[in-house]
């Protein structure tokens, strides 16, 4: 699955962009203007996703991974958040320059999103059936009865037992895992081509997490959707992703396909992150740690943002910001010593 160039989006009214990717983010900049100053939350992030593949965006809190997703969906809180540059092209059309109405159509039908906290993402005062049926009525002009029928099908699709009966339940009457399934059903309602899953299983137990990840993978396969999985969990990523983009302080520091990234990380941050992870299958002694704290986005360190925490840091790192260097294939790394790391045994 890592060979992404082969797979192009299913031809279905491709307008504009020729050999473009299904969803392509280029040089995106977002800042938060706060009382305390301007926090550069995203500083030139570029990634793309094609039909049928899973891109994992990996990062710790504050790395900008969720803000990128919010910007794609157009649900960034403005203020304080402002897009200050870049483009987000879906099927070749830039979402950022498109009119409000057009963009709303893309939301749901083109790109849909699954959130971490299903309880707060669903409206507590309406039944689940009503919320899904309403979507069909509003966006597809269906009758109420047809809407409910489609809602039943969707709940069936996400494997909620006794789907028809459960349409009458309110969100709080579902367990955490089931609620997440409901949200996935809602995201799928309008047949999106790209699904963004923002920490979809962080709030769930491991056994339920496994079920949900299986479900997402299955749906992605069946519908040939592109999926962006946003997470901090290196384990989940290893299980489902095709390609990975690692983010730190609002930049992508490393991009690679899944096997290469875990097999031979080419950025000190990725390397350190993998080393600091307790493993189920290994009983280690002391864990390697990354010293210090994630940077304050109001005062991002000069040069490479990771340099104060980096074990490999040299003088150049504090003065010069490393660019994302291509390392052959789909991999790239933003480190002055990337080639050194790439060349090692």
């Amino acid at each position: 699955m890592s060979d992404i160039k082969v797979k192009t989006a299913p031809v279905q009214g491709v307008n504009g962009g020729s050999a473009s990717h299904l969803l392509e983010i280029e040089n995106l900049h977002v800042e938060f203007r706060t009382r305390d100053g301007v926090a550069k939350v995203i500083n030139g992030v570029s990634y793309h996703v094609d039909a049928g593949e899973t891109l994992a965006v990996l990062g710790e809190s504050g790395s900008g991974k969720s803000v990128t997703a919010q910007t794609i969906m157009g649900i960034l809180d403005t203020p304080p958040g402002f897009v200050t540059g870049g483009s987000i092209r879906f099927r070749g059309k830039d979402l950022l320059t498109m009119g409000k109405d057009e963009r709303r159509l893309v939301r749901g039908e083109g790109i849909a999103m699954v959130f971490q906290d299903a309880l707060s993402a669903l409206n507590p005062v309406f039944t689940v059936g009503f919320q899904i049926a309403e979507l069909f009525r509003k966006r597809r002009g269906m009758s109420r009865a047809d809407g409910y029928k489609r809602a039943t099908e969707l709940l069936d699709l996400v494997k909620i037992p006794a789907a028809k009966a459960r349409l009458r339940d309110f969100p709080h009457q579902f367990s955490g895992g089931m609620r997440q399934r409901v949200m996935i059903a809602m995201a799928l309602a309008l047949d999106p081509e790209v699904l963004i899953a923002d920490e979809p299983t962080t709030a769930l137990d491991v056994t339920v997490q496994a079920q949900i990840m299986d479900l997402l993978a299955e749906i992605r396969r069946d519908r040939n959707m592109g999926m962006i999985l946003i997470t901090h969990d290196l384990g989940v990523v290893a299980d489902v992703a095709d390609r990975i983009a690692v983010m730190y302080a609002g930049r992508i520091v490393e991009q690679a396909d899944v096997h290469n990234l875990y097999g031979k990380p080419c950025h000190p941050y990725t390397l350190a992150l993998l080393d600091s992870l307790p493993r189920l299958d290994l009983k280690g002694q002391e864990l390697n740690t990354i010293k210090g704290l994630p940077p304050n986005l109001l005062r991002v360190p000069s040069g490479c943002a990771f340099h104060p925490r980096c074990q490999m840091a040299r003088d150049i790192c504090s003065t010069q910001r490393p660019a994302l260097i291509e390392l052959g294939g789909v991999r790239s790394s933003a480190c002055h010593f990337a080639e050194e790391l790439y060349g090692r045994e």
Binding site: A39, V41, S61, G64, S66, D77, N296, L297
Partner: peptide, 23 residues
């Protein structure tokens, strides 16, 4: 000059909150 980041309305970027203040 530098009120805490905590009070800033930035729910989506906990990193700003995470940072230790300078003063």
């Amino acid at each position: 000059a530098t009120p805490t980041a905590e009070a800033a309305p930035m729910p989506v970027t906990p990193a700003v909150v995470e940072s230790a203040p300078k003063k």
